[in-house]
Design a binder for these strands. Sequence first.
DNA 1: GACTTAAGTTCGAGACTCGTACTTAATAGG
DNA 2: CCTATTAAGTACGAGTCTCGAACTTAAGTC
Lengths: 392, 392
Amino acid sequence: MATDQPSSTEGLRRLNTSLVLRSLRQQGPATRAELAKRTGLAKATVGVIVGGLAEVAAVDESASVPGGPGGRGRPGRPVTLTGEGLLGLGLELNVDYVSAVVLDLGGRVRVSGTRPVTGTDPLPVLLDLARSVVRRVRDGRLVGAMVAVPGLVRGDDRTVAWTPNLAAPDERVAVGIEDVLEGRCPVSVGNDANCAAYAESHHGAAVGAEHALYLTGTVGIGAGIVTDGRLLRGAAGFAGEVGHMPIGDSTAACGCGRRGCWEASIGLHAMLAAVGMPELDTPYLSAQAVADRAEHDPAVRAALENLGRDVGLGLAILTNVLDPSLVVLGGYFVALGEHVLGPARRSLDERLPSPAQGRPELRLSTLGMEAAALGAAELALEGVFSGDVPVA
Amino acid sequence: MATDQPSSTEGLRRLNTSLVLRSLRQQGPATRAELAKRTGLAKATVGVIVGGLAEVAAVDESASVPGGPGGRGRPGRPVTLTGEGLLGLGLELNVDYVSAVVLDLGGRVRVSGTRPVTGTDPLPVLLDLARSVVRRVRDGRLVGAMVAVPGLVRGDDRTVAWTPNLAAPDERVAVGIEDVLEGRCPVSVGNDANCAAYAESHHGAAVGAEHALYLTGTVGIGAGIVTDGRLLRGAAGFAGEVGHMPIGDSTAACGCGRRGCWEASIGLHAMLAAVGMPELDTPYLSAQAVADRAEHDPAVRAALENLGRDVGLGLAILTNVLDPSLVVLGGYFVALGEHVLGPARRSLDERLPSPAQGRPELRLSTLGMEAAALGAAELALEGVFSGDVPVA
DNA sequence: GACTTAAGTTCGAGACTCGTACTTAATAGG
DNA sequence: CCTATTAAGTACGAGTCTCGAACTTAAGTC
């Protein structure tokens, strides 16, 4: 909960309600008595809180289950977090596609959709998609909306400071979505890598990791950093912009005009140049073709080995700084799979700061195109789980 | 406040009390009416809270000041955070010295002391210093104690996982201090760079910066990272171990057995080797001699220029990842001053990720040897300001 | 000296949590 | 089949907290 504002007894209730909600999400359904034990709250309090949650259709009460654990005594009625009544809208604005996801508090995707964008300005397409998606959610209250954008977003969670490949400056995106939603809920804007990282830590390969690092690779390289279960934002909201760190081949020319950027070693274009293959429609398709070729072509395998080493080198630096327990690779790296994971693990092992520190686990992303939109939706719901947004 | 435990109405009071305390610390003394406006609490509530704080000698009420701002009306009696009744003990265990600082809630150092250690095991010296320091604080309640250690400390804030130059494994340090304090308050252990970073952000060059990076240089290189006003710890508590990141001269041999570690480019020994000067009693003295020589010797200046560039290169990487608004250089860098700051600023400028991001400000540490102990003391008091520790 | 203004306090209403006592719904055993 | 036992859930009263309104207090102003 925001700690820099006054709390009344209602704030107290919000805080304890969020405690119950988090317990239901992280540890699964439970009876009131179990919830009381898990949260430390009194049985009576839990009863009242669950009652309130049931009223807004956030939880569901199944029938009692006789013959449960223990057997004797009155059986409890398990409370499940269905979250049907509380919804978060997540959107992604990208160069070649837009996505939308409506997520309920229980973590189920209620509606989702993706549309390709070719040539034209993607923002109108996103607005149209948002309109149609919102229309399809009749029941339930929208508690928040968030738009993931490939670029730098200021600390106000609203103003876009810089998008290399997208004309969506300032508050245009936020205002556009606010317009579509007609004030039904607050709208914020976030970096796409951050959103995807949040998605991984709640629905993907990093579930349960409080300290995770997400690295995405397309033409550019971006990272999303989760520490203590929260996104690391930085002073201006620009943390995780790792693409132009001087890592890897110090002579490689980068699109930014400098040399030695990590992106110039492990970005999509660098990878394709190294294996001598053309760029296809999407980064993933391009990488898949490379992976196919690698099966028979030792030269391609050697090039990917080099790539993986440079990935590992950068991850070693990030690991030294951030000490994550888990690193998730997304973007085109997913298609290359073990071709890049193996060498990355090895070069990472060589560069751990001390014998005491174990290597963070390396995994591939399991979420597809809609990762960023999914994470944005989860972030839109975050206020409920943190106790900042009243549930009723 | 810890958000994963139940809150009763007393917890609510703790939370609002901490809100008042933080307002007094950050925005200075104020009347009850002003405090009510600043915190958003009701006048009546502030009155009760201030009363409680006065009872434990945390705040002081000056006489009313007639003719204040506005002039008309009953003048308010300003409440000042003196914090005399609530104390934090900070200790530093190092290879060649130990320090102790007793800090009150108002941020004043009440007692402090440093003792050199030569050859022998420093832990007994620290315990003895702690004993004598604690004896000198008769009035006031010790709310916490923290020991800064040059090494890796686990996430439990207690177990030392690895100290390269110090035989103080496991829980020996914590148990020793607990013994001295006879259970008067909880004891925790922390990394020295983290503690120093916290000291800078509360008493030194980084006051007011919510996102700051502290880089210390002696024989080893370590960083302390403050994001959102909190220390970044990482999964195992090892975040900020930046000394062995592959940065700078990739051929330089490091004490760890590898090549290319940042430490091998900008650690004390690398610096001394580059200028061809001997190591003196302390890192600071060694560096001061180098700085003196640089005044007349262009070759030394050129070597320091190189050093500064490598410092900036690493800071660029850290800036890309963390986006701090401020970087503080500590350790031996302080003695070199502008010799290293200038080139560091320039190489940092060349490596910012995007035109939108400004360069973080670079400053020298203003705290001396006792930085780590001071930060440890501040951390020992943190629970009061966060509302986790009851004030009464 | 009466009036105005603003700080600080008092007091009752309302919200919340908690422990205890009570009710309810199951199993175990005779 | 009936009673005892066990545990879940609820009702209720006590205690704590915040809040707004009314009140008191201490200054300046006319």
